[in-house]
Nucleic acid binder design. Structure first.
Lengths: 334, 334
DNA sequence: CTGTTAGCGCTTTCAG
DNA sequence: CTGAAAGCGCTAACAG
């Protein structure tokens, strides 16, 4: 690791002042094309590249972004991260990835660390913080985009999934297929998505004249094993159910396992709908009918929004993007 | 976003010099416990936190790391990233995540950008660069750990999966079940893992006295669809095969699809073994027998190695860690 | 034990 | 069009 070439080295070698080099590097107009070329040549020959941190210290813009997710190993988030990182890369930014492991304490800690690194913008996915805490934390950043979480103010961008529509789509699909006894396994009670998906389901059922029954609705952590357990319990208490909507595909896969244990044949004896359309959804048997959320595109869009707000400083109104889920019909609920 | 408190502010408020504050912040010994306490109080009251970039500029240590992966949305890598980020967080480092999308050009670009950010260390997974290019690129960093890729020198740490053993385990399992006609669908020809898994398979077959046939070995991109295609072609040319080992679980899932199209019943008419044991492996039908690679632990260990080398500067010998895969027997190859 | 003087590498004034 | 001076916030070396 040889010592890095600095701007001073270049200035020296080109026989100009520091400032001239700086101007060339930053593509300022007021340099004669002759000197510009000379400097450029030296830069090229010496392999000079500016130090991001020195520049960051001087300008308070670091060219770095923060990307916070609850669990990078969850395909839903890894898809988002892929899209987001892509977009950031395309515009020349580097991104700090922070995994909170669903722990609000840790979320707070990574936000603080991000702050200390003077990131230019923050993309925060599915924050698990209390509204007031979140508002406060977020206020320390120059630019913020929230994904799948809403607060009334203080933040410059929001990207939401139309979860209510998703819940409604799923329910209506089942209603049209003639189901009248439809259960709902929602995610953790704190989940923003869970709340709205449930709301969509409820209103679809009510609109159709078929009531809801409290017992048909249950909650679980959004992982396969918990989905299995929740399904076993739900079907034990309410064997009359002919269809179940699950908070996400992982829960739905758990439900498939449960049905196999109960020798309940899918989809005839139970129709199943998931959410997200993760890769697993199309490879299980039966393949899952699910509300697809375009994960990568969501990441791209959210990051795009963040970058737009960083660049156009005048235009800082809160911008909201709503992503619509799409029902993908497969064998589990034809 | 109010203006940040600086060290000078603290010095002022505490009636001491800049240096004293610096000493307190950095937990140097030579400060009277009295002044130390006073400074600490002011720091607390003002909510002062040091600027990572200013410190980075002064010390050339930034508290940041680079983590480069070919595809963050591939569960294999998202598991590694989860483990690695965890470990980095535990030791107070922030990590830049860079996704290369399997593109060597982009890999080179992100490495350069990481260099410009003066990261303290680099963890590079499954580099797609040519040996010489890789060696050169890596030489610009103070500390490097390579995952699943080996070069003779110039880098301080290596974490390898014992892929040869994995290939051997898979082959021996099939041999013991009585198979003698075993195909192998390897990953891309450049893949380090692919090469060694294949080698393990070859030597197991040779050791057992059963020869190998070139045609039984084929290559494909490590994704479901390509696995499907490769399987169709392989079985068309060599219908006599009774078992196939796949480069990873995604390819194996593709193989399942192919068999279903060919009405070839698994595992009776074809036994299948994958690699990695991603979550999908246990939910497909039939469930995949696979060589598990402990992805998250791999990430933890690799990052742990990197951090150890950053901290103990004296002890910079190349350290190698070898992770052993474990055969998980399921329905696809009982 | 504490303070002073430089300087990390770059940009932002302001002069020429 | 180009350069000199000052400073971003912090730490490393010396002094005292």
């Amino acid at each position: 690791m040889p010592n890095r070439i600095t701007m001073t080295d270049v200035a020296h070698a080109a026989g100009v002042s520091l400032m001239t080099v700086s101007r060339v590097v930053n593509e300022k107009e007021d340099v004669s094309s002759e000197t510009r070329q000379r400097v450029l040549d030296v830069i090229h020959k010496l392999g000079y590249r500016p130090s991001s941190i020195a520049r960051g210290l001087a300008t308070r813009r670091t060219g770095t972004l923060g990307l916070v997710v609850p669990d990078i190993d969850n395909p839903f988030f890894s898809g988002i991260v892929r899209g987001a990182e892509n977009q950031a890369y395309a515009e020349g930014y580097s991104v700090f990835l922070c995994n909170t492991n669903e722990d609000p304490q840790r979320e707070l800690a990574v936000l603080q660390s991000l702050e200390d690194h003077f990131i230019d913008g923050l993309m925060l996915c599915s924050s698990r913080l209390e509204p007031d805490t979140l508002r406060e934390a977020v206020s320390h950043f120059p630019t913020v985009v929230l994904v799948s979480r809403q607060i009334d103010e203080a933040c410059t961008g929001t990207l939401l999934i139309d979860d209510e529509m998703g819940g409604r789509l799923a329910a209506e699909h089942l209603l049209q297929a003639g189901h009248t006894k439809i259960g709902f396994i929602s995610g953790p009670q704190v989940s923003h998505s869970g709340k709205w998906r449930l709301k969509g389901y409820c209103s679809a059922l009510q609109d159709s004249g078929i009531g809801i029954k409290d017992g048909w609705i249950t909650y679980c952590a959004p992982v396969v094993e918990e989905g299995r357990r929740a399904t076993l319990k739900l079907l034990e208490n309410y064997p009359e159910l002919t269809a179940v909507i699950c908070h996400n595909d992982l829960v739905a896969v758990g439900a498939i396992h449960a049905c196999s244990e109960l020798s309940r044949i899918l989809p005839n004896q139970l129709a199943l709908i998931g959410f997200d359309d993760i890769p697993m959804a199309s490879v299980v048997t039966p393949a899952l009918t699910t509300c697809r959320v375009p994960r990568e595109e969501l990441g791209t869009q959210a990051m795009g929004l963040l970058l737009r707000q960083i660049e156009d400083c005048q235009d800082r109104d809160i911008k909201n993007i709503l992503i619509r889920p799409e029902l993908i019909v497969r064998a589990s609920a034809p």
